[in-house]
Structures are given as C-alpha cells and as structure tokens.
C-alpha cells in the first residue's frame, strides 16, 4: 500500500492505494465516482474514458500511481454550478443519443476532449473523436448529431458571452 494524492474533478483526495490499482478502480471503488464505467477492461470499448490533463484516456489502461500529479476529470464534473447539464449532455438527451446509457459517460468525455480543442469540428473530426467508444444501441448517428449540436450551442454561448463582455466595457 502507498499513500497518494489525486486531483479528481478539481478536488484533492489523499488515499491509500495498492501499487497496481488501476485508475478506473480508484475512481469507481475508492472515490465512489461510479459514472465512469468498466466495459471490456482492455482499451477496446472506451466506457472507462476519463480526461487526464485534458486528454481522453482509457482509465482501465492507466495505473493509479501514474495519475498522481495529473488533473483527472470524470463525467461527474460536467454539470454546471447552477445544476444544469453541460451542453454536450443536454444535446445527447435532446438528440436521442442515449439508449442504455452505458457508453454515454465515455462518449460525452470524448466529445468534450474534442470540443475543448476544436470548437468547430467537421463531421469527420466528430466521428474520429468517438472512434474509441463503442455503442451497441444507437448506431452512432444520433451521437454524432448530438456532438454537432453541442458544438453549435457552445459556440453560441461563447459568442454571447463575448458580446456581453464587450457590452459591459
């Protein structure tokens, strides 16, 4: 066992961990953040996707000790301070991009990793961004459409807040 400090969703956790604990198990079992799912456990399905220093990774293929000193973001961090959903989550609901929901946290985080870096992605960029996330229900079209819609919403929010900022000057 070793004592380790983790930054998950902007919160510091000091916990005792086994040396070979996976980041996925740390998140789900030690920190009880069960929004992150375990699917295949070998990096094929993307259900366990989280963001590490802003990059999407499979948390089943990262050992917890490798994540010390890194910023981890899980699906629990997405809703906004006023309790409303993140525009990506909202778009998933509105576009019917969720059926059983098991792949959804990973899909949403892959979409977030994309939109954080590329606010106006092409259809190809969107498909590429979720190519590491398997969905056995929706057939992907609705998910891709939801991400496109979320990109529009986020861009509108951005330009509105820009206008507002300029307006207050």
């Amino acid at each position: 066992m070793r004592k380790a400090v983790f930054n998950v969703n902007n919160k510091e956790y000091t916990v005792e961990i086994e040396e070979d604990l996976r980041l996925l198990d740390l998140i789900r079992n030690t920190l009880n953040l069960t929004g992150t799912k375990e699917g295949c456990g070998e990096g094929e399905c993307g259900a366990c996707s989280v963001l590490m220093d802003g990059e999407v990774v499979n948390s089943c293929l990262v050992l917890a000790f490798q994540a010390e000193g890194k910023k981890i973001e899980t699906i629990e961090n997405l809703d906004r301070e006023d309790g409303t959903l993140h525009p990506i989550q909202q778009a998933f609901l509105e576009e019917g991009a969720i059926q059983c929901g098991f792949c959804t946290p990973g899909m949403v985080l892959s979409a977030k990793a994309l939109l954080d870096k590329n606010p106006a992605p092409s259809k190809h960029d969107i498909r590429e961004s979720i190519s590491g996330n398997l969905c056995r229900c929706t057939g992907y079209n609705k998910i891709a459409e939801a991400i496109e819609k979320a990109a529009e919403t986020l861009e509108k929010e951005e330009s509105d807040s820009g206008t507002a900022r300029r307006g207050t000057k």
Partner: peptide, 9 residues
C-alpha cells in the same frame, strides 16, 4: 493505431 484514447497514451 488504436483509438484516440490509445494514441494519447
């Protein structure tokens, strides 16, 4: 190679 998740690591 792999997926974005794999290529990031």
């Amino acid at each position: 190679i792999g997926s974005p998740q794999i290529r990031n690591r």
